[in-house]
Design a binder for these strands. Sequence first.
DNA 1: ACTTTGAGCTTACAACTGTAAGCCAATTTA
DNA 2: TAAATTGGCTTACAGTTGTAAGCTCAAAGT
Lengths: 203, 203
Amino acid sequence: MSRAQQKERTRKAIIEAAFSQLSAEKSFASLSLREVAREAGIAPTSFYRHFADMDELGLTLVDEAGLMLRQLMRQARQRIEKNGSVISTSIETFMEFVTGNSNVFRLLLRERSGTSAAFRAAVAREIQHFSAELAHYLRKETACPDDLAQLQAEAMVTLVFHTGADALDAPPEQYAKLSNRTIMQLRWLAHGAASYGRHKLKD
Amino acid sequence: MSRAQQKERTRKAIIEAAFSQLSAEKSFASLSLREVAREAGIAPTSFYRHFADMDELGLTLVDEAGLMLRQLMRQARQRIEKNGSVISTSIETFMEFVTGNSNVFRLLLRERSGTSAAFRAAVAREIQHFSAELAHYLRKETACPDDLAQLQAEAMVTLVFHTGADALDAPPEQYAKLSNRTIMQLRWLAHGAASYGRHKLKD
DNA sequence: ACTTTGAGCTTACAACTGTAAGCCAATTTA
DNA sequence: TAAATTGGCTTACAGTTGTAAGCTCAAAGT
């Protein structure tokens, strides 16, 4: 195996180890370099051959999470084309993401309000992508001005994220209820924005 | 000074010390018992005369924060009586709270999705109070069914909290813009809920 | 007046942390 | 083939952490 391949392999192992140690009870901030290195099967100091410090690893994890989010959007896009309903399709897709990759979602959720400004900015960027994408659809469907669509999309994403967070602490039999509640909220938003949209946005 | 008085005094000192160490860069989880004790002016082991562990202190802080939130609601109630506009008065009051007690708000914001289930539950309870109170007003103003008012209030609180979080990372000259954006979103919600409310809520 | 209580202290320990210094061996380059 | 590079290792150190054990001494109780 080539040198570069091997290096990439253990780099992946580190990332993998970090993700696998995240849980409901353990946040990224509470991971230790030594623990991660141990699980990745390397000596503590070897960690530095790949990342300058834990922060650099953390940003990598956030990027990785953002990537998954973008894959999710692609998936949602296809479903919307087929299904038609933007709102319920979006939230269904998102809930699948949350329940299927709860640690990844938790990372975004926590670092969004974490102690590192860089992390917060990184997460905000990823979420921004997400809602811009949604705004695109809203524009197409409701034909409202760009900034209104964006504002509407941001509100929707906020509500959906919050529902995802709730789902993490709820038993699975409540997922449907949570989704339905959120769908109702999103419909209110869409309806309100459509009929109330003529009012100008002040700044 | 009586024994009990003195005890209460250092207890307050511990709580005070903990709050004062919270910041944008430091979360409750990253506080250490020893640091807190040092700032409170007691020996590390004396901490245990007041709290079984840091978790117990944390729950106390959350309760304290909830108290401030409830005081805030009382204040908002008065303002609403006088001013009339539920939405803009509410968010203005809330933004004052966020900017004036940013560490307290940050505590709630972070522990809402933190690593302790007990903390999460405690914060959820406080926020629940908050939105129930808002629901009360919505019911009075829009005369819609109880569960719809509650659902609407929860959406509103979610959006307002999120705006508060944004404000923490934004320069003060953007507060007005953030507020206006959120007011717009809340109006959409209110408008949508009012005209769309006849549709039944499934579960 | 005598005893009990308990807040706060000092000392001590074992566990863990991040990371510096430097060696080894295998791949890559010249 | 010889030299250079580098991923991974071991060892080591200084710092921090939570908390156990036990003392002191002033307030409270009898």
